[in-house]
Design a protein around this nucleic acid. Structure first.
Length: 864
RNA sequence: GCCGGGAUGGCGGAAUCGGUAGACGCAGCGGAUUCAAAAUCCGCCGCCGCAAGGUGUGAGGGUUCGAGUCCCUCUCCCGGCACCA
């Protein structure tokens, strides 16, 4: 065995062994319990970044740990290969997205392989392969048949210069990222999936997921946002016709306080009123340039204009004016809201601004109402009772809502309903690099689904987008097809699917990788659900919710038999890095990689700015944020792997922080991880020449305490592993090595046996994190052929016993000394020993004890 | 703005149920080895203090014999907000 640690030859040898023995090929088998360990697949952006290393190391640690624990493990890998960055790269470099994507996949695959992950590569898939997206299309058609998929208008960001639809990410401060042109809202038709139909199931089934973090379940529940309220109408007459303006509210108890109604700029009433009103027309036009993003909507200045149209209050018949409000969303709810300035903070601000009446209809005993400023209790629905509300005066929230809903229902103007914040999922994208939506548009037959036998509708792979519009419009060979119904010339749909569709069911496809004739096969029933899913917390809502929805649709179509796809979820914290950019007046925003700038700091070490190393000019410091291709702040792990090896990179990543915690990237500390790996090798080398024997029944005190330290550390590490706290598992390895090196130094009689026992524990504990070095040492030391086949070590109780325990001695809660007592001592004996101790005497200063708290095994607190 | 999370030495972090704050590392300092350096090894290392001791887990308050941990208020940072993935 080599004396010097050489990661290159050693890691290659280990990887070759796994390759040649097909160590990670997963085969369905009833002999062992199955364990499907899945990490979220990467977008092939070019190179791995540290977030990937973190994600996949966590997955690999769990995979290898469960293999050693005797599970039949599947860990697959693939590529979320459709998406916007490939089109951006195409615009920049004139390379077809397909070529760029496949090149990236090849490079990143080799990077993943060099990290030694226990992946079954035979199941690899990429979502841009027709054999995969065939089934996106097939299932979409089934949803269409079931009415789950349907068509309606959607609001998109329109770049008037490039004549193209922009993603939210491509809109910077209301302008197109490439053109700098003011972005407009535009309404176009698109396909939606009726996820709201599944809202109750998606909400209720969260209770079936004890293995999910509470925070994720809470976020999903809040996102679904089930609310109970009243949908009711304000009647009005327009052009001699009786009409109704519908709204929804969760605060029907405040209905008597309505002083106006607000509608969205796109609402028919607003458009009608604008006909002879140039000021309103201008305002509606201005609203076209406001953002469609919820965060912008919520923070922008609330503006409005009266329409001059009045509607009747459904209970009092009073006339209230309709306003157009820039904060009312057409696509959400009814596109109109009742306004109760006295009891809604947003309405209150709006009323103050436009001097609209504020009418108090809820009172809380002991609180005075004033229209001068908003007070927290105005909006508290549980605190007060109705006032100024006629027959409803004195009623509390529930009673008032019930009475008012009943009266509205009696007039045919309203009813109690349940509503969700969740909106249906718009899946149409006006983009090239995605899965084609399998529809053909025929002038006589309308939108006709592509027949199943013509699937998959293959995306041409040689287009090069140029930033203006969808290149599929120019691909006549793709575009022009006969109508499947009447045979006349027709046009293919050129919209592609949201890439969230691709990632909503890939986990099921891995499990049926060898099936070509169906979306999934019976192997899926064996492997699913995923036992452990691992991925970034940023996916807590959208991806996970869409996957849950997709699973339920597949279940309802009889394709699978599970309700929930992911039994256990580990949400990995993001790896963050500094972000630097320049924003030119016109044109594209420019990002700088952290190694392209020099940081400027104030005296406290806080980053205040930066300047470009290339031109010495300042760049904007945008704070820290998640590593991403678009912000150019990702760190490629390649240099780390080459310099220190995969084991060091993996070990360092696990050691750096607990998996669920956000991590600000810094490579200080890699040296320490590497030192530890090298020291492990050195001790292994030293032990390789030492004879192995059983640990003696009676050990000298020093050796016994070292052995105890190892088993105690193992016990702690086993607990930490069960909690997925891998950073302390890594430090447990360090503690064990420290203890073993101490034994080596002291070299008391019989130490070899303790050392071999301890070292074999250390190797097994470490092998999920640093698989290469532990694989080689396990063989070189003759412990066995394959450490993956070795049983997981359990701490020996016999090694843990001790005769004496040390307790903490406190006087008045302050640590004043330590106390050694026999392990068998009872509370009374401990209390007596504590009171008699020198430290206690000193700090009690002759006062009698008022109380003595004894926590066995921990401490004694004497209160005087 | 709304929803979720976080804040502990110079840095990453540890502390399972409310029970020794700072495990394990990094950086730093001192020493050994070396012609010298790297590597390696040994020791020190929250802050104030010569010491005794005091003080200390983002800020302020509270509960408790005892609070990093529980409760209330606040600040800052991160993630998500439906077309980045």
């Amino acid at each position: 065995m080599q004396e010097k640690y050489d990661h290159q030859t050693l890691e290659q040898a280990a990887q070759q062994y796994w390759e040649s023995t097909k160590a990670f090929r997963a085969v369905a088998s009833k002999d062992k319990p199955k364990y499907y360990c899945l990490s979220m697949f990467p977008y092939p952006s070019g190179k791995l970044h540290m977030g990937h290393v973190r994600n996949y190391t966590i997955g690999d640690v769990l995979t290898r740990y469960h293999k050693m624990r005797g599970y039949n493990v599947l860990q697959p890998m693939g590529w979320d290969a459709f998406g916007l960055p490939a089109e951006n790269a195409a615009i920049q470099n004139s390379v077809p997205p397909a070529k760029w994507t496949y090149d990236n996949i090849a490079y990143m695959k080799q990077q993943l392989q060099s990290l030694g992950f226990a992946i079954d590569w035979e199941r690899e898939l990429a979502t841009c392969q027709p054999s995969y997206y065939h089934w996106n299309q097939w299932l979409f058609l089934r949803m269409l048949e079931k009415g789950i998929a349907y068509k309606k208008t959607q609001v998109v960001n329109w770049d008037p210069v490039d004549q193209t639809v922009l993603a939210n990410e491509q809109v910077i401060d209301g302008r197109g990222w490439r053109t700098g042109a003011l972005v407009e809202k535009r309404e176009i038709p698109g396909y939606y999936l009726n996820i709201v139909q599944y809202a109750d199931q998606l909400l209720d089934d969260l209770d079936k997921l004890p293995g999910w973090p509470e925070r994720v379940k809470l976020m999903q529940a809040n996102w679904i946002g089930k609310s109970h309220g009243v949908r009711f109408a304000f009647p009005y007459t327009l052009d001699g016709k009786e009409e109704k303006l519908w709204v929804y509210t969760t605060r029907a108890d405040t209905i008597m306080g309505v002083t106006f109604v607000a509608v969205a700029a796109e609402h028919p009433l607003a458009l009608h009123a604008a006909k002879n009103n140039p000021e309103l027309t201008a305002f509606i036009d201005e609203c076209k340039h406001t953002s469609v993003m919820e965060a912008d909507m919520a923070t922008m200045e609330k503006k409005g204009l009266p329409t001059g149209i009045f509607v009747s209050h459904p209970l009092t018949g009073e006339q209230v004016e309709v306003w157009v409000g820039n904060y009312v969303l057409m696509g959400y709810g009814e596109g109109a809201v009742m306004a109760v300035p006295a009891h809604d903070e947003r309405d209150f601000g709006f009323a103050l601004k436009y001097k609209l009446p504020i009418k108090q209809v809820i009172a809380v005993a002991g609180q005075n109402f004033s229209t001068a400023a908003w007070a927290e209790w105005y909006g508290d629905k549980q605190a007060g009772v109705c006032v100024n509300s006629g027959k409803y005066d004195g009623l509390g929230y529930e009673a008032a809502v019930d009475a008012i809903a009943a009266d509205l229902a009696a007039k045919g103007l309203g009813e109690k309903t349940t509503q969700y914040r969740l909106r249906d999922w718009g899946v149409s994208r006006q983009r090239y690099w995605g899965c084609p939506i399998p529809i053909i548009h025929c002038e006589s037959c309308g939108s006709v689904p592509v027949p199943d036998e013509q699937l998959p509708v293959k995306l041409p792979e040689d287009c090069v987008p140029d930033g203006s519009g969808n290149p599929l419009h120019k691909r006549l060979d793709f575009l022009n097809v006969p109508c499947p119904q009447c045979g006349k010339p027709a046009k293919r749909e050129t919209d592609t699917m949201d890439t969230f569709v691709d990632s909503s069911w890939y986990y099921a496809r891995y499990a049926s990788k060898f099936s070509d004739g169906a979306m999934v096969d019976e192997e899926t029933a064996y492997w699913m659900p995923v036992d452990q899913y691992i991925g970034g917390i940023e996916h807590a809502i959208l991806h996970l919710l869409y996957s849950r929805f997709w699973s339920k649709v597949m279940r309802d179509l009889g394709l699978v038999n599970y309700d929930e796809p992911f039994a256990n979820l580990l949400t990995q914290g993001m790896v963050l890095n500094h972000i630097f950019s320049r924003h030119p007046e016109k044109g594209a925003i420019q990002y700088f990689a952290p190694d392209e700038v020099e940081l400027l700091k104030d005296e406290s070490g806080r980053v205040t700015g930066a300047k470009s190393l290339a031109d010495g000019q300042p760049v904007d410091y945008k704070g820290i944020g998640t590593m991403s291709k678009s912000k150019r702040n990702g760190v490629d792990p390649q240099a780390l792997i080459e310099q220190y090896g995969a084991d060091t990179a993996r070990f360092f990543m696990m050691f750096a922080s607990p998996p669920e915690q956000t991590l600000e990237w810094a490579d200080s500390g890699v040296e320490g991880a590497h030192r530890f790996i090298k020291r492990t090798w050195s001790l292994g080398h030293a032990l390789s020449t030492l004879p192995r024997s059983d640990v003696a029944a009676k050990l000298p005190d020093g050796l016994a305490s070292i052995r105890r330290e190892i088993h105690l550390t193992l016990k702690q590490a086993s607990y930490d592993l069960s909690k997925h706290q891998f950073n302390t598992v890594a430090s447990a390895g360090m503690k064990m090595l420290n203890a073993l090196e101490k034994a080596q130094k002291e070299a008391a009689a019989g130490w070899e046996a303790v050392a071999h026992e301890g070292f074999s524990i250390l190797l097994r504990l470490l092998s999920p994190i640093a698989p290469h070095i532990t694989h080689v040492l396990w063989r070189d030391l003759g412990y066995g052929d394959d450490i993956l086949a070795a049983p997981w070590p359990d701490p020996l109780e016999a090694a843990l016993v001790q005769d004496e325990v040390e307790l903490v001695l406190q006087v008045n809660g302050k640590h004043r000394g330590n106390l050694k007592v026999p392990a068998s001592a009872d509370k009374a004996a401990i209390e007596a020993a504590a009171l008699a101790s020198e430290a206690a005497q000193k700090f009690m200063e002759g006062q009698p004890p008022k109380k003595v708290v004894v926590v066995p095994g921990r401490l004694v607190n004497i209160v005087v």
